[in-house]
């Protein structure tokens, strides 16, 4: 059996042991997660494995096969240059399939005045980019991929992993943020170009500080600026679709989600540019009581 190298990573309430056949993959992670808390005791929730697709492919046209404690049978391997993406996908997979301590919503989240703004939608909606931008403009970044809804209190638990910027968001954020917070540019991934961005130090330091959800947006990029109300049935259905563990949580998930839908105001938001979206969000935020 070939040797594995590993690093333990703590993000919010979850800890991952990312094990890789390539030392270089571990050192990239070590560097990018350098300002996250160190896991001293090696006790983790999940193991992610990054291995060559076939043993002899460790060096020849190497490709990374993603697996771990929880895995999907048909996950396609990635080229070795994209090992960072593979690690992030591996961690996402563990959360999506294995995490039960919160209701997971496929949503980004930011916080201001102790209250959380959540944004959810299909990929391309801009939810990840918007959270990254707001995180540099006076909001606390809480997560760009999963919003963790506490099952008993209804609060949002931060999960601020590296932000995964895609395509046009990459140059936009490079204008806002110093270069030393970026990971390598990954070109030609299944999702286009990807570059990882470290959240601000303060967002990482406060990743155990919860916030009460105050507004949920369904952003949609590329349409004339508009706000629309949504019916509770539509919201409920779309959130069950946006949750990876709603069914797995049974009655607990049902209670948490119905409570969220009852209590949290929701808007569908169309926008053409980041600036426009931020102006709309500022206005909505000011109108909240």
């Amino acid at each position: 059996m070939s040797a594995m190298h590993h690093i333990d990573i703590e993000v919010g309430p979850a800890r991952f042991r990312v094990a890789s056949a390539w030392r270089q993959a571990v050192s990239t992670l070590d560097q990018l997660y350098g300002h996250y808390p160190r896991v001293e005791d090696d006790l983790v929730d999940f193991t992610v494995r990054l291995e060559p697709e076939k043993p002899w492919r460790k060096f020849i046209r190497p490709s990374v096969h993603i697996s771990g404690d929880f895995w999907l049978p048909d996950a396609a391997p990635l080229p070795l240059q994209q090992h960072l993406l593979a690690a992030e996908m591996g961690m996402n997979l563990q959360m999506a399939l294995g995490w039960r301590r919160h209701l997971l919503l496929h949503a980004s989240s930011v916080e201001k005045d102790g209250k959380a703004l959540l944004m959810t939608g299909l990929s391309g909606s801009g939810k990840s980019t918007l959270s990254a931008m707001l995180g540099e403009n006076g909001w606390r970044f809480m997560g760009d991929e999963f919003a963790l809804l506490c099952l008993d209190s209804g609060m949002i638990q931060p999960f601020p992993r590296l932000i995964s910027l895609k395509n046009e968001a990459i140059p936009a954020m490079n204008e806002l943020v110093p270069a030393d917070r970026f990971g390598p540019l990954l070109q030609g991934t299944p999702k286009g170009d990807i570059q990882h961005l470290q959240p601000q130090q303060a967002a990482v330091e406060t990743m155990d500080v919860l916030a009460k959800p105050a507004l949920l947006l369904f952003p949609r990029f590329g349409h004339d600026g508009a706000l629309r109300n949504m019916g509770k049935s539509e919201i409920f259905v779309r959130l069950t679709q946006a949750s990876t563990n709603y069914v797995a949580l049974g009655e607990t998930g049902f209670r948490a989600l119905t409570r969220f839908v009852d209590e949290v105001p929701v808007k569908a938001m169309d926008y053409q540019s980041g600036d426009e979206a931020q102006a709309m969000i500022d206005k909505l935020w000011a109108e909240l009581r």
């Binding site: 019916g231 509770k232 049935s233 409920f236 009655e251 049902f254 119905t258 839908v261």
Partner: peptide, 13 residues
């Protein structure tokens, strides 16, 4: 069964 009313529809868990 747990009943929960939304708007035009309702849920049964």
């Amino acid at each position: 069964l747990i009943h929960h009313d939304l708007d035009s529809m309702s849920l049964i868990f």
